[in-house]
Each structure stands twice: as structure tokens, then as C-alpha cells.
């Protein structure tokens, strides 16, 4: 008995060393590239937003009617001016502040709240699960815009209103996703093993289950952030968005509406900014999901 086991032990050890060297994890190259490019784009936008005060050539709200609708490249206005003669570059930079802040807030809050509720419902099951699932289904059926208009009426327009409204509606996506993932995960043997080991429930949830399921909600959040930026844009278009004179990309495009055919730069530059943000976040989402799937 002991002879054969000690024999197998030494062979296992040498085999094991060979093997672990070879298998040392490499993540797929495509994932690294996506992630890197995405991070560079979003990082650059964040820096631009942070240093908007230093980088902006002009005050984004200062009107200069005589110089209105100046084309890009005009002296002092690299990207031109809008209908009120405001510097488009400066407005873009300050708008990045607003839009990125709203996007981060409107994604983080529902992510945290939704995942927490969904995880508990999925793990506990029973009546808790049925109640949460019921609420989720009701909210899914609720029209976002109606809720938003009601909130604007109660809270007044502004960035907090948008974040609260988006949170109220979109936590359910995360809750449903997390609940389904946790239900699948909780029946896996390693979770049963953790229960048999006598680990406290909060520990099983946090250190074991959450770590194994969090990749999907986070990836989803990245793509959701793109949707939220577009949503703010749409709100700006409807006049329910960030109140003037604070700039945001959506309102800039909305304001440019009468000039779409005559003065392209008014809409194109904020449009490009939205595209870049969307592309950056999508690349990060894509890279993260590939990286996590590889594990």
C-alpha cells in the first residue's frame, strides 16, 4: 500500500511540475487587445473630462453671437462654434464630465442593488424568490419614460433624477440575471461542499458564489453603460435630460437639429464622442467577458 502510494506520489510530483509550467494561464490575445484599446479610449475620455477646466480653450457656456456657427478650424475654435457662438470643443469636454458621471452612476447603482437582491433571491429560493421574481416582472412591464416624466415632475430635472429613474428601472435586469446564475451555481458540488464544510452563508455567497457569477453582470453593465449614454442623449433630445446651460452630448445634438443639413459640425462632433464612448465600453465588455470565459 504505502509503497505504491509513495511511488505514485513522486511520479505525480514530477509530472505535475512539467504540466503546470506548460499550462500556466495565458488569456486569449484578442481579449487583451480589446480590453487594452477599450481602456485607452475610456481612460482618455475620463482624463479629458477630469481636466476639462485646463484643456478647454474657452468657457463652455460663454455665448458669442457674432461668431456663431463658425466652421471647424476658425481661429480659437478648433471644432467650430454652435448657434450661440459657444466653443464646441470646450462644450464636448465639459459634457464628457456630465455624461460619464451619469453613465457610471446609473450603471453602478443598479448593478450593486440588482445583483444583491438577485443573489439573495436565487440562493434562498422559496417565498423570497417568488416575491422578487414577481416584482421584477412588474417592473419589466413598466414604461421607463412615464416613470421618468413622473420623477422629473416630483424631483425636478437634473442628473440625480436621471440616475434615480434609471436605477429604479434597470436593477431588475441585474436581479434576474444574478438570480438565474446563482440558482444554477448553488446546486454545484463546490457550493454544497462549502455548506457541508460549515461555512457561514454570507461567506458562501460572497467568497464562493458571487466570485463565480459576477463576470456576467459586470460585462452586462459595460454594455448597459453604452445604452445609458444613448438614453441620456435621447432624453436630451426630448428635453428631459440634463438641464441647460450645463452641456451634454445628447442636448448638443438635439440643439443642432435645425442645422443638420447646413452646419454638420454641430451634430457630428458630439455624435463622434458618443460613438467613441460606446466603442470603448463595448471593447472593455468584450475583453472582460472573453477573459472571464477563458477562466
Amino acid at each position: 500500500m504505502s509503497v505504491s502510494s509513495s511511488l505514485s506520489r513522486t511520479r505525480v510530483a514530477s509530472w505535475y511540475e512539467r504540466r503546470s509550467k506548460r499550462l500556466r494561464r495565458r488569456s486569449p490575445r484578442g481579449a487583451d487587445a480589446s480590453l487594452a484599446i477599450g481602456l485607452v479610449i475610456i481612460g482618455a475620455m475620463m482624463l479629458a473630462a477630469l481636466f476639462a477646466g485646463v484643456l478647454s480653450p474657452a468657457d463652455p457656456t460663454r455665448q458669442d453671437i457674432p461668431n456663431a456657427l463658425a466652421p471647424p478650424g476658425t481661429d480659437g475654435h478648433l471644432l467650430g462654434t454652435d448657434a450661440l457662438g459657444r466653443d464646441i470643443l470646450s462644450r464636448l469636454l465639459y459634457a464628457a464630465r456630465t455624461d460619464l458621471f451619469v453613465a457610471v452612476g446609473a450603471v453602478l447603482l443598479p448593478l450593486v442593488i440588482g445583483v444583491a437582491i438577485g443573489t439573495i433571491a436565487g440562493y434562498r429560493g422559496g417565498i423570497v424568490d417568488r416575491v422578487v421574481t414577481g416584482v421584477v416582472n412588474v417592473v419589466f412591464a413598466f414604461p421607463v419614460l412615464v416613470l421618468l416624466i413622473a420623477l422629473v415632475f416630483i424631483l425636478g430635472p437634473g442628473i440625480p433624477t436621471i440616475i434615480v429613474a434609471v436605477t429604479l428601472v434597470s436593477w431588475v435586469s441585474y436581479a434576474r440575471l444574478a438570480r438565474d446564475l446563482v440558482r444554477r451555481e448553488r446546486s454545484l458540488d463546490y457550493v454544497l461542499a462549502a455548506r457541508v464544510s460549515g461555512l457561514p452563508t454570507w461567506r458562501i455567497l460572497g467568497r464562493h458564489i458571487l466570485r463565480n457569477i459576477i463576470a456576467q453582470p459586470v460585462t452586462f453593465a459595460m454594455s448597459d453603460a453604452v445604452a445609458i449614454i444613448l438614453f441620456i442623449t435621447a432624453l436630451g433630445f426630448l428635453g428631459l435630460g440634463v438641464p441647460p446651460p450645463a452641456p451634454d452630448w445628447g442636448t448638443m445634438i438635439a440643439d443642432a437639429q435645425p442645422y443638420f443639413t447646413t452646419h454638420w459640425w454641430l451634430a457630428v462632433f458630439p455624435g463622434l464622442a458618443i460613438c467613441a464612448a460606446g466603442l470603448g465600453l463595448s471593447l472593455i465588455a468584450d475583453g472582460l467577458s472573453q477573459k472571464w470565459n477563458a477562466q
Binding site: L188, D189, Y190, A193, V196, S197, L199, R203, R207
Partner: peptide, 28 residues
């Protein structure tokens, strides 16, 4: 009362090192 499971591929937490998993149980 402890248990050994059938499927060795699902019975260990894929994201925890063996050391961390053992230490956690010992500490708890």
C-alpha cells in the same frame, strides 16, 4: 460530518486556490 462528492470537476471552487480554500475552512 464531511462529504466527498462525485464530480471532481464541479466540487472545487474554480476561482480559489487550494490553499485559500483549505485555510478558509480551518479559520472558520
Amino acid at each position: 460530518i464531511q462529504m466527498v462528492f462525485q464530480d471532481p470537476y464541479s466540487s472545487l471552487n474554480p476561482r480559489m486556490t487550494i490553499g485559500a480554500a483549505l485555510v478558509e475552512i480551518l479559520r472558520v
